[in-house]
Computed example of a mutant assay.
Amino acid sequence: MSATCKEIKILQPTKEIWPGHPDSSISKNIRNKTRIARENLTFRIEFILLGFSDFLNIQGFLFVVILVIYMSILLGNGLIIIITNIDPDVQTPMYFFLKNLSFLEICYTSVMVPRMLKNLWTQSRNISFIACAVQFYFFLVFRITESLLLAAMAFDHYVTICKPLYYPVIMNHKKQVQLVIGSWISGIPVEIQLTYQIFSLPFCGSNKLNNVFCDIPPLMKIVCGDITMSELFIFVNAVVFVIPLLLLILVSYIKIITTILKLPSVIGRHKAFSTYSSHFMVVELLFGSEMMAHWIPKCKKSKGIDKLLSLVYCIGIPMFNPLMYSLRNKDIIAALKKILPK
């Protein structure tokens, strides 16, 4: 009897672990995969815009500076819209395009700067996946619209200088409206596709975007999958939109400068250059920063250059536009004197 009991004691079964048991290796693998998927999902739901986190000691100062710049952008571009609407002396095709450009700058800046100010004020740099995608989409659409409007303005200047007799036929009001509407809507389908292409990529690892808003370079840095097709689509997008527009503007201004240099009057040449040089300076600033941001190899960029160029997009160009077009334009200054107190 004792032997039997001893045998039973020795042969007592151990704790049985079946495949669905919590301690089984299969269950542990499932839990690990679930945890990793949950972490990756968290990264996809939310990003962190590092912004000015390197300058924690001057967050308040940066908030005040950016707020002042933002208010000046709203005021300057708003004044141009008001002037071109109420003063009959500046209700010409050139100012029709300028009015649309000023409205665009207000929309363009308002997509990014309020979020930047909120992050500085609250010290909370989180941005949801959807909010980042929306900000990214409108940023791209407004960038393309601005490029198209600048190209339309360059073409208008070309016709004014080089084909003055044909101007009423070539640039009638219907043509102007068509160019403006085309500028606003042409980039919409392409940028929807590009936004979908970027935000359908697998974001894993870090969810930190070292920038002040959701832009292409910082987003591509945290993608962990194959980005060959996305980079190809971005390149094709630049080739289709940016390069032809830049060539159109350059050819237009080469012809404009050639024609102006042939004018017999020195005063006439000076007036023509002062009128159209502002537009050319804006074009240089926009396309120059565009090429530096996306066409310079990553290995040759210094640390923080993407963030600096993003600030040029956000507040630099919109702030300089009204200054360049108003301070260097006698018609705008004369209209300002009419509506503002002496």
Results as ranks from 00 to 15, higher is better:
residue 232 L to N: 13
residue 55 F to P: 00
residue 266 V to F: 13
residue 222 I to N: 02
residue 251 V to P: 01
residue 229 M to K: 05
residue 182 G to T: 07
residue 201 L to A: 14
residue 141 V to T: 04
residue 224 C to T: 14
residue 291 M to T: 04
residue 115 R to W: 09
residue 335 A to L: 01
residue 72 S to N: 07
residue 235 F to Y: 08
residue 160 T to H: 08
residue 310 S to L: 03
residue 234 I to V: 06
residue 14 T to H: 15
residue 258 T to N: 11
residue 221 K to P: 01
residue 89 D to E: 12
residue 271 K to Y: 13
residue 292 M to S: 13
residue 74 L to K: 00
residue 318 P to N: 11
residue 271 K to H: 12
residue 27 S to T: 10
residue 32 N to M: 07
residue 207 N to P: 01
residue 228 T to P: 02
residue 230 S to D: 04
residue 240 V to I: 13
residue 171 M to Q: 08
residue 226 D to F: 05
residue 179 L to Y: 05
residue 204 C to N: 14
residue 340 L to G: 00
residue 260 I to N: 02
residue 208 K to Y: 13
residue 139 F to D: 09
residue 315 I to S: 11
residue 286 L to I: 07
residue 35 R to D: 14
residue 3 A to H: 14
residue 40 N to L: 15
residue 317 I to H: 02
residue 54 D to A: 15
residue 306 D to W: 08
residue 316 G to K: 01
residue 15 K to Y: 14
residue 259 T to C: 13
residue 136 F to H: 07
residue 181 I to A: 10
residue 244 P to Q: 07
residue 167 Y to Q: 13
residue 128 S to K: 04
residue 42 T to L: 10
residue 312 V to I: 12
residue 14 T to W: 12
residue 258 T to P: 09
residue 143 R to Q: 15
residue 309 L to H: 04
residue 40 N to Y: 12
residue 91 Q to R: 06
residue 32 N to G: 10
residue 44 R to W: 08
residue 242 V to F: 12
residue 341 P to G: 01
residue 195 T to E: 06
residue 99 K to V: 07
residue 265 S to N: 02
residue 276 Y to H: 11
residue 172 N to A: 09
residue 143 R to V: 14
residue 167 Y to D: 01
residue 257 I to K: 01
residue 54 D to E: 08
residue 166 Y to V: 03
residue 96 F to T: 05
residue 63 F to S: 05
residue 201 L to G: 12
residue 209 L to K: 00
residue 281 M to N: 05
residue 232 L to Q: 09
residue 115 R to N: 13
residue 316 G to F: 04
residue 215 D to P: 09
residue 265 S to V: 03
residue 320 F to H: 01
residue 124 S to H: 10
residue 13 P to L: 13
residue 90 V to R: 02
residue 83 I to A: 15
residue 132 C to D: 06
residue 291 M to H: 04
residue 210 N to S: 03
residue 204 C to S: 15
residue 108 Y to I: 05
residue 65 V to Q: 03
residue 218 P to G: 06
residue 267 I to W: 03
residue 33 K to Q: 15
residue 123 Q to P: 06
residue 18 W to Q: 11
residue 150 L to C: 10
residue 65 V to C: 09
